[in-house]
Amino acid sequence: MSMDRREFLKFIGLAGLGLGIGASATGWIFSRGLEASEYIPPPGALTAKRWAMVVDLSKFKTEEDYQRVIDACHKIHNVPDFGNPKDEIKWIWTDTYEHTFPGQENKFLPKEFEEKPFFLLCNHCDNAPCVRVCPTKATFKRSDGITMQDYHRCIGCRFCMAACPYGARSFNWRDPRPFIKEIDPTYPTRTKGVVEKCTYCVERLAKGLQPKCVEVSNGGLIFGDLADPNSEVRRILNTHFSLRRKAELGTGPSVFYIIGGEEDV
């Protein structure tokens, strides 16, 4: 059999194509899951149409009240402590009114507000800029409103960090493991080069538990379904004046701050 160069190239091309199709078909047959198996939402999980959180600042009085919440979250989620602001990773933390609500500064606030710490965490926005900018859908929106992060898929481009108006996201600038005091063996750590943040404790919701911060807040943090008019968060928001961070940006943050609290109806 003799063939000229053109024919030979054609032959090679077709053979390659055939091989490719064959290989992918075999792959498809073998990769198909088991017919009878299925994936279901865990029975007994807490579910909602739109999860949201209310921060009732009147319930937090001492420094310990705040620290307990932060420590509880960071401990169960294996959040490292690098001890320097450059590498810092945090899921929930505090800052003053001036820095929590920049642009809303008021020189004549009562002294107690000027220094009062406010909780900061991911706002799980309706219209999350981080989700919009992520080039791999590593950060995405769940149907219950939670802005979720897929560490397996994150390429570490940090576009989401530039996009988040709330500074809610942290990057693993280096291997976090050596900086976790005691690793909780039931929860993964992260690897270097991925972005992380608060997840409203999806792993606990799946087990029918409230987020950890809510559990240890002594009623200062209230978590519930914003779409359900009878939920506790809705009841509180109906009777209290609430604030959201940078709501003017149209992101639709789902963390609400109430200041008073005492005049509970």
Binding site: D87, E88, G156, F171, K192
Partner: peptide, 9 residues
């Protein structure tokens, strides 16, 4: 990791 650079949170 990228901590080798000057970039930060």
């Amino acid at each position: 990791g990228l901590g080798i650079t000057g970039m930060s949170r």
